[in-house]
Design a protein around this nucleic acid. Structure first.
Length: 192
DNA sequence: GTACAGATTGAG
DNA sequence: TCAATCTGTACT
C-alpha cells in the first residue's frame, strides 16, 4: 500500500504544510484509472485574518464552508465561472486555513508533460478531472484520491508573493507562495 | 429581485 | 489585451 499522508500532517500550521507538501504525490483513482501528479507549487490562505482568503473576517458561505473542516480535506470551487481551484484544508476544525495547489508535475504522462497541462491551478484540475464532485473529500480516508509520500530526495523550496490577489492590499505582499526551485512545471505568471 | 467582481486561462 | 461564464455578496 501507499505511504498516504496521515491526518497529523495536515493539521499543523498552514505555512509548514505548504512547504512540506511540495514534492509529495497527489493520486486520483477513478474508474480504474490512476492519475498521479507531483505537487510543485502551493499558496497558503490563512483566514480569517488573510484578506485574500474567502474566509476573511470569519465569513462562512456555502462555497467556502469546507475550509472550516479539519486538515486533510479538499476544498474545491469555481473561479470566474470557468476554472476549478483545488485546495487542501489545514489546521483544526473551525480554523479556515487552506493550501491552494497551483501546479503539478504529471507522472507517467509524457503527453501532459510536453504540453504543460498542469502549470496553473485551473489547468491541473482539468487534467486530473477534478471538479465539485470531489469537494469536501477526505484525503485520509478517501478511496479515490489522496496524497502520498514517495520519499523523494531533499528538494529546494523557494517562497514568493502570491498571485492574482492584488485587491488584498498588504496581504498580496505576503511571501506565502511556495514552489520547487528550478521545476519546469511551476505556473508562469509572476508579479515582479 | 438586479449588479458586480473574482485565488484564471487561452486566444487575438 | 480581453472575453468566457457562474457564484457569492451587496445592494434595491
Amino acid at each position: 500500500m501507499s505511504n498516504r499522508l496521515p491526518r497529523n500532517f495536515y493539521t499543523r500550521a498552514t505555512l509548514e504544510v505548504s512547504k512540506d507538501i511540495l514534492g509529495k504525490y497527489l493520486v486520483k483513482k477513478e474508474r480504474g484509472k490512476k492519475i498521479v501528479g507531483k505537487i510543485v507549487e502551493t499558496e497558503a490562505y490563512i483566514g480569517p485574518r488573510d484578506k485574500a482568503s474567502h474566509a476573511y473576517n470569519g465569513k462562512v458561505t456555502k462555497r467556502c464552508k469546507p475550509v472550516y473542516l479539519k486538515g486533510g480535506h479538499f476544498y474545491i470551487y469555481l473561479c470566474y465561472g470557468i476554472h476549478w481551484q483545488l485546495n487542501i484544508t489545514t489546521a483544526k476544525k473551525g480554523e479556515p486555513e487552506c493550501i491552494l495547489i497551483r501546479a503539478l508535475e504529471p507522472i507517467n504522462d509524457e503527453k501532459a508533460r510536453d504540453s504543460k497541462k498542469t502549470n496553473g491551478p485551473g489547468k491541473l484540475c482539468r487534467w486530473m478531472g477534478i471538479d465539485k464532485r470531489f469537494n469536501e473529500e477526505d484525503l485520509v480516508y478517501s478511496k479515490r484520491v489522496w496524497v502520498e509520500d514517495r520519499k523523494d530526495k531533499k528538494i529546494k523550496v523557494v517562497s514568493a508573493k502570491r498571485i492574482g490577489i492584488d485587491y488584498a492590499q498588504e496581504w498580496a505582499e505576503k511571501p506565502w507562495r511556495f514552489y520547487i526551485k528550478d521545476n519546469k512545471f511551476v505556473s508562469r505568471k509572476s508579479k515582479s
